[in-house]
Design a protein around this nucleic acid. Structure first.
Lengths: 208, 208
DNA sequence: CTACTATTCAAACGATCGTTTGATTCGTGA
DNA sequence: TCACGAATCAAACGATCGTTTGAATAGTAG
């Protein structure tokens, strides 16, 4: 029996396990003792490598969000500024990178749930961290949506984007009470999820 | 200086404060010492009146959900079975009771945030409690939506209702990153919120 | 091999957690 | 007024929390 994640360093094992347990039990609900035990590392390793639990949480976000938002901005740039681009294109540029990351082999599945947790947490420190580091991406997309929905007032647009963000976050994290059938794979489930989300959100944004 | 909630019993003061602090810090993040201190009652009062923290959490839900779901079912019955009822009517029957409860004088504002917390929590005990006690209401509404959207397959419908539920939950809890203007009151903010939600969700449900 | 740094380790720190205890006070019917 | 259950209280329980310490070990450059 080899250790669970033999190829990764202590630091990386902690990050991976923390992501999983934060998704499952929340930031307050998952203790460092649970994390280090599951990662097969010493308790003190967290404070040695990250300084504090708070910093570990931030690093869990940073590791995934840097890559995710880079892909999102790339996807947005890829569809260009040409007038033929549709609402669905922009929505897809926002959703698909998250979908793909959630299906990678290193266990990104848990991260979208961590993101949803962060959405529900009203912790000021965490919100400021996310806003400071990744707010520009949301503003970029808001601008793209604005050009595609010129008939909407600024207030109206923000309202709808707020709703869309909540719907996407929630649906990607698969928090619904309605369980998916057992015979569809996790991957096809998420692929379908993305398609439904894009169609639903586009219709909602265009309403009236 | 009178005590903060002089007209309420110890039991009710605990429930009210617990609701607020659970909304703000989560179930694991809010301690019984914080709750009892803010409610100006003895620490042991929680275990005396409720038995445990877990039971207190359930009682926080029960107090609001019994009333909320009664109003929801009444609103659904009120619009009747006549073919003139629209998707917007059913959505309104689901949303408006939550909106009104969130604006009552006894501080229901916090509860919609507690609900959103519960949505993000994957705690099996809590999910089972909610499903056992209030699942029939969701099934009732699902049936109403089904009749109004006959062209959708069962899978499609469930997909979209799942998205709608997430959007409603998060938007009602006002978790968005986009802050509302300071000059609009909390009440008009929520009223606008409900209207936008109904329009958005109706368009999304009718998509394609 | 030696010297030095980086990392891991067991153990303990003080603080806080949910819960329990037993005494005290309150409120009401006899 | 008395008696008895309900309610509140201060205090403490053992468990667990995040964090710190100092020694032991691993790894590397000279």
């Amino acid at each position: 029996m080899r250790p669970l994640q033999p190829n990764f360093s202590t630091r990386e094992r902690i990050l991976g396990v923390a992501e999983t347990l934060f998704a499952r039990h929340g930031f307050a609900g998952a203790s460092l003792r649970q994390v280090t035990a599951a990662a097969n590392v010493n308790l003190a390793a967290v404070n040695y490598h990250f300084g504090s639990k708070e910093s570990l949480i931030e690093e869990v976000f940073r590791r995934r969000l840097d890559e995710l938002n880079r892909h999102r901005l790339a996807a947005l740039a890829a569809i260009g500024e040409n007038p033929s681009r549709t609402l669905e294109d922009v929505l897809d540029a926002f959703i698909r990178p998250a979908l793909e990351q959630s299906m990678d082999s290193t266990g990104g599945t848990a991260f979208v749930r961590v993101l949803a947790r962060a959405y529900a947490e009203h912790d000021e420190r965490l919100r400021k961290f996310l806003s400071d580091n990744y707010g520009h991406v949301l503003r970029e997309f808001a601008g793209a949506f604005s050009k595609l929905l010129p008939s909407l007032s600024k207030d109206e647009l923000y309202w709808r984007l707020d709703i869309v963000a909540g719907a996407l976050t929630y649906a990607m994290a698969d928090f619904g009470m309605i369980k998916r059938k057992d015979n569809v794979s996790e991957q096809s489930h998420r692929e379908q999820s993305a398609q439904h989300l894009v169609r639903f959100a586009a219709a909602g944004l265009r309403a009236e």
